[in-house]
């Protein structure tokens, strides 16, 4: 269980997140959606302990963030492909596996490679990989420590539609053992999440299952929710 309460974060004078409070339940996929620049990545970096939040608190399984040992439980996939281009795919996986400090069984490495369909490319240097292959390898690396929490920042960018569906099926399978937090701005992907957190105006503007949100706003797709939010903001704006 991830509990964020009254958390704020600003860089200098610019406030990125203001008074964010949210609980993220276990064993489901929570989608963090919103236009770019609304603080999705900052929120994730605060969760990881990479950025320090200014006020409030973040707790994962009742342990306060930041905490180094907590990272054992978390698998993280950044927005950019964080791979060593001069190592092979397999070497990348093995290296990061070792960083978790415990022995990762060969079978786990193998099944992860199968999951992202990189088995026949594992001996290739990453610099010869296509964009989609790199993304899949990054995903495989995030899964390698069989984490309780899986935090994925735009995981399906550049992955072809067939594989994307495949990966979403796999992500739903992972729910058995993990809690997933996924950022995306592809709205049809948002519909595949169990819970949605809509980010807007430095905080969470709406939350609930995709169906609940659509009903609340009386619209037929998520894009329109953001348009509604935009209109509300305009109406509420003080008239000078």
């Amino acid at each position: 269980m991830i509990q964020i309460s009254n958390m704020s974060k600003s860089f200098g004078k610019q406030t990125i997140l203001r008074d964010v409070s949210v609980d993220i339940d276990t064993n489901q996929i929570t989608g963090l959606i919103g236009p770019s620049g609304t603080g999705k990545t900052t929120l994730i970096k605060c969760l990881m302990g990479m950025e320090k939040y200014d006020t409030g608190s973040i707790q994962i399984d009742d342990t306060a963030v930041p905490n180094r040992k907590l990272l054992n439980k978390i698998g993280y996939m950044a927005q950019s492909d964080s791979l060593y281009h001069d190592l092979t795919g397999l070497e990348n996986i093995q290296f990061f596996a070792h960083m978790y400090g415990r022995k990762i069984p060969k079978k786990a490495v193998q099944s992860t490679l199968d999951l992202v369909q990189l088995e026949q490319h594992k001996k290739k240097l990453v610099q010869h990989y296509s964009g989609g292959m790199k993304r899949r390898l990054s995903l495989a690396i995030a899964l390698i420590n069989q984490p309780e929490y899986l935090i994925l920042d735009e995981p399906t960018v550049g992955i072809d539609p067939v594989l994307k569906l495949n990966i979403w099926d796999q992500l739903h399978d992972l729910k058995k053992d993990s809690t997933l937090l996924i950022t995306t701005h592809i709205m049809d992907e948002a519909m595949k999440c169990d819970q949605l957190l809509l980010m807007k105006n430095k905080g969470i503007a709406a939350s609930g299952t995709p169906q609940e949100i659509l009903e609340n706003f009386g619209v037929s797709d998520i894009d329109q929710v953001f348009l509604r939010l935009e209109e509300q903001e305009y109406e509420n704006a003080p008239v000078n």
């Binding site: 990881m48 990479m50 180094r68 040992k69 990272l71 054992n72 978390i74 993280y76 950044a78 950019s80 492909d81 964080s82 791979l83 060593y84 281009h85 990061f96 960083m99 978790y100 400090g101 690396i141 420590n145």
Partner: peptide, 14 residues
């Protein structure tokens, strides 16, 4: 710049 440092720091390495 390749982001691997960030990825490395997302593991429990000191």
């Amino acid at each position: 710049s390749s982001g691997t440092l960030e990825k490395l720091l997302s593991t429990p390495i000191r």
